[in-house]
Amino acid sequence: MTLLADFYAKHSRLIDQIGVNAILALSLSVSLQAGQLALAQAAFMGIAAYVSAMLALNAHWPLVATIAVAMLVSTVVAALLAYPVRRLRGVFLAIATIGFGEIVRVCANNLGSIQFAGRTVQLTGGAEGLSGIPNDATTLVIYASLAFVALALVLISRTKFALAVALVREDEYAARGVGIDVGAVRTLSLALGGAIAGLGGALYAHASFFITPTDFGFARMEQILVWCVVGGVTSPFGAVLGATLLSILPEAIRFLADYREISNGVILLAVILFAPGGLSSLWRRGAVRVRS
C-alpha cells in the first residue's frame, strides 16, 4: 500500500494529466464517429478553461458550478459553430474548424481585460494568461468525470442516435434516404463533443497552476487527434487507450532527451499503416478471429 502511495506521490501530476487527456480524446472521438474531422476541440476546451477559471478567480464560485457553466458555454459555442459549417465536408471542414480555433486563440490573446463602467475587469489575462486558479480538480474529481463521460458514451452507443451517427458516417445519402436529419445528427454530435471538451478544459484549468492561449492552440488540437487515431474511435475505450499510452510514453523514454517526441510520430504512422482502426481494433480483431 505504501508502494502505491509512493507511486502516486511521485506521479500524481502525470496521472491527473492522463485523466484530462482521456476526456479530451473522448470529446473528439464523438465527432470523428459521425465522420466529421472537426478540429475545434482545443478551442472548445480553451473557452471552457477560461470561463471556469474566470468564474473561480473573479466570482469565487465553487468548482462544480464553474464546470457546469463552462460546459454550458462550450456546448452552445459548438452547436452554433455547427450551423455555418453544415455544408462543409472532409478537408474543408477540417480547415474551417482550424480557422475557428485560431480566431478563439487570438481573442484569448487580446481580451486580457476590459473597461466596464469605469472599472477594469480581468478577463483572459492576455498572452500571460491566468494564474492562481484554485487547484481543486483532484485526481478523484478527474477520474470520476472520466468514468461519467465514458459511461455516458457507452450508454449513448446503445441508442438509436448512435445508429444514426454510424449511418451518417458510412453513407450520408443513405442516411437521408431513410429519413435521418443529417444536419441534426452533425449538430448534436458536435455539441456533445463540445460539452465533453468543455469538461476536459475546465478540469485542465483547475489542475494546472496557470493557463495561457497557447495551451489551446493547434498543437494541442493535433495532440488530441493523434490520441484518437492511435487508440481508435470505434469505442470509447480506444480514445482512452490512445491518450493514456501517448501521455505515458514520452515520460517513459526520457533518456532519449530531445528526441523522445519521435515515439509519438512513429507510433501514429505505424498505427495508420498497419492497424487502420487504431490499437483498440487490434484487440477486437483478435477476439473475432478467436471466435470464428
Binding site: 493535433e222 487515431v229 510520430g265
Partner: peptide, 25 residues
C-alpha cells in the same frame, strides 16, 4: 483524403523531434 492528413502529422512530429534533437530549442 482524411487519413493522409493525419499520417502527415506523424511525419511532421518525427521531423520536429529530429530537428529538436539535433539543434535544441
Amino acid at each position: 483524403t482524411l487519413v493522409p492528413l493525419i499520417s502527415s502529422i506523424g511525419v511532421a512530429i518525427i521531423i520536429g523531434a529530429i530537428m529538436r534533437g539535433i539543434y535544441g530549442v
